[in-house]
Design a protein around this nucleic acid. Sequence first.
DNA 1: CAGCATCCTTGGAGATACTG
DNA 2: CAGTATCTCCAAGGATGCTG
Lengths: 106, 106
Amino acid sequence: MAKSKSLEACPVYKTAMILDGKWTILIFRDLLANKVVRFNELRRSLGSISPKTLTERLTELEDQGLVSRKVYAEVPPRVEYSLTEKGKGLSAVFDSMAKFGDKWLR
Amino acid sequence: MAKSKSLEACPVYKTAMILDGKWTILIFRDLLANKVVRFNELRRSLGSISPKTLTERLTELEDQGLVSRKVYAEVPPRVEYSLTEKGKGLSAVFDSMAKFGDKWLR
DNA sequence: CAGCATCCTTGGAGATACTG
DNA sequence: CAGTATCTCCAAGGATGCTG
């Protein structure tokens, strides 16, 4: 979903832009289910995502304040991802989507 | 958002697939606001969508049973689009997205 | 009016190899 | 382990002209 000018005012549209991307909702799903996840852990649970794409999505989500990234100064490196309060705010959206899906899709 | 195998079971994911596409949520927005809309009317209110794309989206939505298409045997032709009950079922999703947007975005 | 047929462009994502 | 750097590709959309 590419950006559309003139709609940056619509809260529904802005929320939709957050959820855009082939893997985004799956990342949220994992982060909602597990409080804290590491990079390769997330990568494995998503299945076939490339590291480039995962990094891109996570960086975007972090820049939007939806995901927090904690780096531990260890060897080997450890990085943990989790949802911020803002990110957790999306759970209501997911709930309503689940309800719709359960009722109308298959 | 391209399809991902193995997730056709997740109701959230399936709902997200419905909403995918650059113009889809905007089309729903118009159809939720106005009970009935004609092709060029929709086209104008969306702004810069190409007729090809609008036809594609509407056909998809019709195939999914979300939008109903009524053709009147008149000259010039008149075609009216509106939401089905299933389509209206998405309003709860839009509501929760609006709430999130209002609270967290801007 | 409501599309359809064509051609073209773009960027999101995949694959793979490499590094601090 | 957690990424970065490249290269490649395809499908979603855009632009435009035509038609029943």
